[in-house]
Simulated scan of single mutants.
Amino acid sequence: MSKVAVVILNWNGSEMLRTFLPSVISYSAISGVDVYVADNASTDNSVSVLTKEFPSVKQIILDQNYGFADGYNKALAQVEAEYFVLLNSDVEVTEHWLEPMITYLDTHPEVAACQPKILSWRNKDSFEYAGACGGYLDRYGYPFCRGRIMDVVEKDNGQYDDILPVFWATGASLFIRSSDYWDAGGLDGRFFAHMEEIDLCWRLRSQDRGIVCIPQSVVYHVGGATLKKENPHKTFLNFRNNLLMLYKNLPQNELRHVMFVRGVLDYVAALSFLLKGGTANMTAVLQARKEYYALKQEFRASRENNMKKISLQVIPEQIKKSILVLYFLRGVKCFSQLNKFYQK
């Protein structure tokens, strides 16, 4: 068994492999670390590129495109390591990116997972939207980050360089104990893609397993390389999976209220898309709600199982406020303004 397995899930990303894999190979060349690429049945020349240009990288060839969630489940089932690193194919890593995370988990057995500081590959002095310096959640399931609230992304001036507990670590660069990954049930393959890492982290936090951001490790993420932000299919997956995540993980005393408010907010979002000319995205939101209700019964057993395992009733990294209200009505545009709203 190796100490660390860095596993990159690839689908039709041969050019991204050529661009970003060299940094991963170069800066992960330490004892006990293996680099894998798991190919999700690509139809481009990804496998031949790996074989010819990156012979040191271990390959896992999947027989079909299982999406992000189940693709990783099936790939990681073929890997033996103490720690897994789930790394997007559009991430450029930096020298010594692994060591701070290895050291932290080695010395903090109560912590299940961590992530590095995620900066934008295009604007390297700014945080990256999907992860920044660690993820948090509001009462109604809206994720935000230390370094990004809604669409406002902060510049990195070292203001978040302290190690802090977070609610979720981004799937773009998720460092996790293999034992915790499997004990929590892995990523939910039914999600296909989007929100699956937040769902996994919620299960871990509910069982009082820690998740932290280690800013001493730095990577640069392109972001949106598979589905662009405005893509209606991405809108559909984000809204549907967010509702399913809430249903799976909300304590019973919160469920009815939160889901009612989310219904109102989702219809407001659909109307907002329509007014901006985004008919396809409006339809995606409505279709997401329809499919949530169609799938709800299928997720009932998962919810019941999660409720039985809860040992941390109140998760400190979740604010009992609406980030939408704080952003649009209270003028909160950066994470440092949120301190007074956190549960203590």
Score class of each variant (00 low, 15 high):
L237P: 00
L237W: 02
N238H: 02
N238R: 05
F239L: 12
F239M: 10
F239C: 07
R240Y: 01
R240I: 03
L244S: 05
L244M: 11
L244Q: 04
M245P: 00
M245W: 09
L246S: 02
L246E: 10
L246D: 02
L246W: 05
Y247G: 07
Y247Q: 05
K248S: 06
K248I: 11
N249W: 08
N249I: 08
L250F: 03
P251D: 04
P251W: 01
Q252V: 10
Q252Y: 00
N253P: 00
N253F: 02
E254M: 13
E254F: 01
L255E: 09
R256E: 14
R256D: 13
V258I: 12
V258Q: 03
M259P: 00
M259H: 00
V261R: 08
V261D: 11
R262H: 01
R262S: 03
R262D: 05
R262I: 03
V268Q: 15
A270K: 04
L271T: 13
S272V: 11
L274M: 14
K276Q: 14
G277F: 02
G277P: 00
G277I: 06
T279R: 12
T279N: 10
T279K: 09
A280D: 14
A280I: 03
N281K: 06
N281H: 01
M282Y: 02
M282L: 10
T283D: 14
A284T: 04
A284R: 07
V285E: 13
A288H: 03
A288E: 09
R289E: 14
R289G: 12
K290F: 02
K290E: 14
K290M: 14
Y292M: 08
Y293P: 01
L295R: 04
K296W: 03
K296H: 01
Q297T: 13
E298T: 12
E298Y: 04
E298K: 08
E298F: 00
R300A: 15
R300L: 15
A301M: 10
A301W: 02
R303M: 04
E304R: 03
E304S: 07
N305D: 11
N306R: 02
M307E: 13
M307S: 09
M307C: 04
K308I: 06
K308L: 13
K308G: 06
K308S: 13
S311W: 03
L312F: 04
I315V: 14
I315D: 15
I315L: 15
P316D: 10
P316G: 08
E317G: 07
E317V: 09
Q318G: 05
Q318P: 00
I319K: 08
K321A: 09
K321R: 13
S322F: 09
I323K: 06
V325N: 12
V325P: 01
L326S: 05
L326D: 10
L326G: 08
L326C: 05
Y327I: 06
Y327H: 10
F328P: 03
L329Y: 03
L329W: 07
R330K: 14
G331K: 01
G331Y: 02
V332A: 10
V332S: 05
K333Y: 01
C334V: 10
